Simulated assay, not measured.
Amino acid sequence: MALTFSDVMEHLNAGVQLPADTVDKLEPDAAGTEVQGIVTAFAASQYVVEQAVRLGANLVITHEGVFYTHRDHPDGLPQDSVCQQKSELIARSGISLYRFHDTIHRYTLDGIVEGLLQELEWGAYVERHLPEVSILTIPEMTVSEVAAYVKQKLNIPYVRAAGNLSAACSRVGVLVGFRGNGSTVIPMYEQESLDLVIAGEGFEWEVPEYIRDAVRQGKDRALIMLGHAESEAPGMKLLAERLSRRFPEMPVHFIPEQPVFQIV
């Protein structure tokens, strides 16, 4: 029997209870369509959609929204040439985009967190997973050494770091996406005796300013910000690997992007 979009979604959603206002959905909603190929990506960028077309894939599984907001634009797309050109490309391509955000974050081990830890080869160092942070004890390194290691493992050109970069650290909290804000992160330093937090992103006037004051007080606490996409893309890469194993007859591709920001 032919594999349909519905079959793939049922496989991905098995056992997960989603909130009533979930953002996860298929657009256009053509669940009975036969799958020709699958692409996974952090975001369905212009480049990713173009690559899906080139590869002959007609199902793009994207973690983040297509049109630059977490939720749909309730009154339709903005009257903006970028949005309109992208919308026209998607319409011409015959591709459906499956937003896969809430479900993967609700797996028994958050699938995005699991992908990042696997890419860093730190799974063996996990002490426990809390709802928004994973607590690790890694081999002792300086903050600078951790930053270099993370860049090499994730194949990214830069991270941003705050704190005493020559300080030794082994107790690490790892968070993905937009979880790096003060209410989540700051209590963890003392509750979990953390030397270092590695996060995707967060408000810059919260944890970074806390780190500034901690260092001024002589406390060796540090922060590494990977970037939202850089922290979550490994989870979508892992998803592609798992879909390839589950549907071995189906071409499945993870499409990475370069970091959106450049150092100038």
Rank of each mutant, 00 (worst) to 15 (best):
T4Y: 14
R246V: 02
G32V: 06
Y158R: 03
S166H: 07
L238W: 05
L117D: 03
G111R: 09
L194K: 04
Q118A: 15
Q36V: 02
G37S: 05
D220I: 02
I186A: 00
F178H: 13
G163F: 15
D102K: 04
M1K: 15
M1T: 13
A161V: 15
L136W: 03
L223S: 00
I224K: 06
P248R: 00
I224P: 07
R242L: 05
G111E: 08
V39K: 04
F42S: 02
A240I: 07
L243C: 00
V39Q: 07
Y47Q: 05
V260T: 07
V53M: 10
I255N: 02
P78I: 14
P74M: 12
K237N: 06
L18Q: 10
Y47R: 12
I263K: 03
R54A: 15
M141S: 03
P28S: 02
E249F: 00
P157L: 09
S193I: 00
V126T: 09
Q152M: 01
E127D: 13
S87C: 13
V16G: 03
D102P: 09
F67L: 10
M225R: 05
R212N: 08
W205D: 01
D110G: 10
V53W: 05
L89Y: 08
S170V: 01
L55Q: 12
E230K: 08
R245M: 02
P157R: 02
